[in-house]
Write a protein that binds this DNA or RNA. Sequence first.
RNA 1: GGCCUCAUAGUUCAACGGAUAGAACGGAAGUUUCCUAAACUUUAGAUACAGGUUCGAUUCCUGUUGAGGCUACCA
Length: 595
Amino acid sequence: MIEQLLTDKVKEAVNSLYHLDADPSQIQLQNTRKEFEGDITLVVFPFTKVSRKSPEATATEIGEYLKLNLSEAEDFNVIKGFLNITIKKEYWLNFLTENYNSDNFGYGEKSNEKPVVVEFSSPNTNKPLHLGHIRNNLLGFSLSRILAASGKNVVKVNLVNDRGIHICKSMLAWRKWGNGETPESSGMKGDHLVGKYYVVFDKYYKEEIGNLVVEGLTPEDASKKAPLIIEAQQLLQKWEAHDEETINLWGKMNGWVYEGFAITYKTLGIEFDKTYYESQTYLLGKELVEKGVKQGVYNRRDDGSVWIDLSAEGMDEKLLLRSDGTSVYMTQDMGTATQRYEEYNPEQLIYVVGNEQEYHFNVLKVVLKHLGCEWADSIYHLSYGMVELPEGKMKSREGTVVDADDLMQEMFDTSEAMARELGKIESFDDLEARNLYRTIGLGALKYFILKVDPKKNMLFNPDESVDFNGNTGPFIQYSYARIKSVLRKADESGLEVTMSKAQDADMFPQEKELLKKIHDFPVVLAQASDMHSPAVIANYAFELASEYNRFYHDLSILKEDNISSQSLRLSLSHFTANIISNALWLLGIEVPERM
RNA sequence: GGCCUCAUAGUUCAACGGAUAGAACGGAAGUUUCCUAAACUUUAGAUACAGGUUCGAUUCCUGUUGAGGCUACCA
């Protein structure tokens, strides 16, 4: 890669000119802005101190050195403190020749080192998946692919939260008011059916609270003394005591939910290497807490509860074990993290979890380190922002959630309507048309969510739904389909891609821009895996597609009678299509061969 | 109260401390003998406020204002 060559040569240059052993961070290379002549720009301000010359003079000296000593350097010009270097055409053409047929251009070497474990999704089993889960799933899945492409050995895991008071609420409501309703009898998807009874529970629970408040209780007391919540808690105790009837009901209703989730995951295109169930892991961690008490790093109070004092770290006291000896969230997470560490010996443990749990993960790390687990440093919380609706935050109890299944169906319907309106599918058979709606609809949804920096809250307006024009997935998919169409036509016309001919071609500035953009892909990929950000890949894919469309929109590639130019354009098109498809694959987005 | 995050065109999003802050949608005006108009071209429009560090600040630091989150013997 030219960046590496330049970095080395610049280092050599400042050493020879100014006797400076330059730090890599001082050598700042960037793509030259389009309005200036040149390909790559060196920012020379960091060297003006040692050169004791003006930025212009310094840039000129370094430029002269590079032109003399770097064979790829064609020429240079200086504007203020910016040294714009032009790279020889041969370099770009050689780069094209060597890589245009490479299927995994830019991907890192596959390493056999310790794995990276990525946990994402982690749903509760009392209700269907919603828009917030979609952001989680897409981020986790795309991140896993990006890390894998950069050479890591990735393990995707899901921890299903299948036990607890929430599922007991659904169970109780179903038993009281369900009349034996099943997914088969109701025609409902299993997760939606269970979610329905969660809402039913909440309705009657709220009524009871209301009545108690009328009788004179405070809302807080009322919410604790309502008969329904007490009954639900008793159900949880029965579950923990392995009561057969309770376990059976729990197993049955969870089974419905899993069937529903499986469909949602499949539609969304998400899969895991391993799924853990909280019912099997929730007892883990208690031993760790006891161990901590023995070591004197945690404190047991008179009532039997266990705490850790984190005031030295600038945090509060935190409960690790209840007075009745049962686990809390933190206890379990200590256990599952330890289990996962022992199982995989990972280089990194990544948790894709919303930013409302940032404090929890900070505490988790510190609590483990107090126990002497140095590996706690390998825990990384990929914290993402909330998905907000125009009317504010989603609240499942207030029914302002956007259901994942409904949303995807809407996307499919919208893309179908658009395709029909545009007359896109006249030559398609039914199956191909249906696949296209799915591909486009999902592409729109995924791209819309992934293009936003994970850490930021994002706004989702269901009424406007997701666009199909502009900076969108379908635009990129369209660009891909169009390139494929060009290549098909070329093939039918008997045109051949001959790189030896292309080497003789003149390269238009726009063609070089496109090639430079492709050339950047490995750098972008590395950056994305460093920053854990699919958004970097998404925005890159859009820029690449735009670049292609802008240049070729009114140019007849096939009618060009100069064989060299034709070869250059076809191979450039082929290469662009490859990179677009690779970039979208990293986002979990499919490309259509035609649309 | 304490702690954390965010604040950029009318709207949704960009910008390793670098050049004249980019796109897209929406607004206004155009472009179909061609590979495919889900496209392309032109145009108006923004760094919340006040200081500081720097050759250079949307970016780093301090303060103010505004939005969200956390601060449960819930998970």
